[in-house]
Nucleic acid binder design. Structure first.
Lengths: 107, 107
DNA sequence: CGTGTAAGGAATTCTGACACG
DNA sequence: CGTGTAAGGAATTCTGACACG
């Protein structure tokens, strides 16, 4: 669930240079997609951006859509829709867990 | 097996600053352990070191042993011993796989 | 042996802006 | 709207060396 401890995929540890190499996107594009609220890198105390592998995957998806002529605003709407689905699934999973706990089900 | 495609854990993507923060070790120590052949970061074209999460784990183990007064040379011996065990296990696993394939076992 | 540090240079990243379209 | 680029500054990383012990 969303309160799980973060694994490698979600740790924000890479700076923009390596992200650019991995994704093939320019620094400019990467910063621009952040400006459009599509990705959310963290910052060190001094202000350098830090990205995760999950961000890399998101960037790949963004790049695909941009290539298909989709605008950043539309991409953002798509992403928040998926996010809601995700949240719903997690809630359901949790509820099932509670029901099982309530009836003290042994497997 | 060792020819598997690399996952997030093994990708060399972090520079020394973030490694220092994650492990709590100084830049000096991190570079020194490399000098002693305990870790093997990659380099970008321009020469900046890139580490993986696997390297982070190795560094933690090194730090523990150094704290216990173990010398880098001893640590290296320990590591190559473990490496041999690892290789042996992989070989065994592969041989079992081949045997299964040979007898065309269905599960 | 393991680690800190000052030194100087090179590479990285940051922001705000102008450009084109 | 999405992206390139030149600009100037700040932060990062690199190497080789001296120091202490």
């Amino acid at each position: 669930m969303s309160t799980d401890k973060k694994n490698y995929k979600d740790k924000k540890v890479m700076s923009i240079g390596i992200i650019s190499k991995i994704t093939g996107l320019s620094h400019r594009k990467i910063r621009y997609y952040e400006e459009r609220k599509l990705i959310f890198p963290e910052r060190t105390e001094k202000g350098t951006r830090k990205y995760s592998f999950a961000d890399v995957e998101t960037l790949m998806e963004i790049a695909d859509q941009i290539e298909d002529g989709v605008q950043t605003y539309e991409i953002k709407k798509e992403m928040s829709k998926k996010q809601k689905e995700q949240t719903k699934n997690e809630r359901n999973k949790m509820i099932r867990g509670q029901i099982n706990a309530h009836f003290n089900i042994k497997k």
